[in-house]
């Protein structure tokens, strides 16, 4: 009995020591020097692996940032908050002038207001429809409304509204910009969060032609330009263009716009420049 306990303990002990020696040698021999900051950064990032930074997933960005290949504010989904914390970890100055960005749909051509010339019957994808005579919408600058951006959004921040235009949930939007890349017409663009005035049209056609295709297009009538007391809106190339830095969102131009293409949000409606990181916390 005793001998069998002794034999068991001894054999197990010897085997364990042998294996321990092997592992100690291996850990010396195959040691990897890894920068602990990489893991630190990987935990800071949103973790959605959206790829908007241009690296493979969040861990890829973390590695690139530590190696100095990616800027501290490279994570577009994380916004300024993440950028500041990344900068802190990396020991560089916090990037200045970074504001949270959100997607905005620059088209007001709802199903009721934009003329349709044909009925598109193919693949329900804006990128495919765009290649067939413009996809059936008479205006070739407006939203086609097949929801390619909605499907592409990794943060669930886009939904297709009842009137055939996508709606951005600015609390969920992280400004990663993937929707802007899939939109074949560039209708979705990134804007600073908290901006309150928008000209929801991209058509550079003369007013006469815009009128033919859409009731909610900018016809370059110049009324807004004349009304504005702050020199914040100008008609450039047949399209009213707002200078956000000068605009005080008084709402004058929006009220008088004959095609109601200028959107002016009241203060409480405007997506505030949410504290950084709130975007992903909410989702």
């Amino acid at each position: 009995m005793l001998s069998s306990i002794l034999a068991a303990s001894l054999s197990m002990g010897l085997l364990a020591v042998a294996f321990a020696v092997l592992l100690v040698w291996a850990s010396r021999r195959f040691t990897v020097q890894e920068d602990p900051r990489v893991e630190l950064l990987a935990n800071l990032l949103p973790g959605a692996n959206c790829g908007a930074c241009g690296f493979s997933g969040c861990s890829g960005f973390a590695k690139a940032a530590v190696e100095g290949k990616a800027p501290a504010d490279g994570c577009r989904a994380g916004g300024p908050g993440v950028a500041a914390r990344v900068a802190e970890v990396l020991g560089v100055a916090a990037p200045a002038g970074v504001t949270r960005q959100v997607a905005h749909v620059f088209c007001a051509g709802t199903q009721a207001l934009a003329k349709r010339t044909g009925e598109y019957r193919g693949l329900p994808d804006c990128r495919a429809a765009e290649l067939v005579s413009g996809g059936g919408k008479a205006c070739t600058y407006g939203c086609l409304g097949f929801g390619t951006c909605v499907e592409a959004c990794p943060f669930d921040a886009l939904t297709m509204g009842p009137e055939g235009l996508p709606v951005v949930d600015e609390r969920k939007c992280t400004g990663c910009g993937i929707c802007t890349q899939v939109c074949p017409r560039g209708v979705i663009q990134l804007v600073d969060a908290g901006r309150r005035t928008f000209v929801n049209c991209l058509s550079p056609l003369p007013g006469k032609l815009v009128r033919q295709v859409c009731q909610a297009g900018c016809i370059a009538c110049n009324i807004c330009e004349r009304l504005c007391e702050h020199d914040a809106i100008h008609v450039l190339g047949n399209l009213a263009t707002i200078t956000p830095e000068l605009c005080i969102a008084c709402g004058q131009c929006s009220a008088k716009c004959p095609t109601h293409v200028i959107e002016c949000r009241r203060e409480e409606e405007a997506g505030e420049a949410l504290p950084a990181g709130a975007g992903q916390a909410a989702s």
Partner: peptide
Amino acid sequence: PAVRTTLP
């Protein structure tokens, strides 16, 4: 998409 933003 680039064409869209150019002027007539």
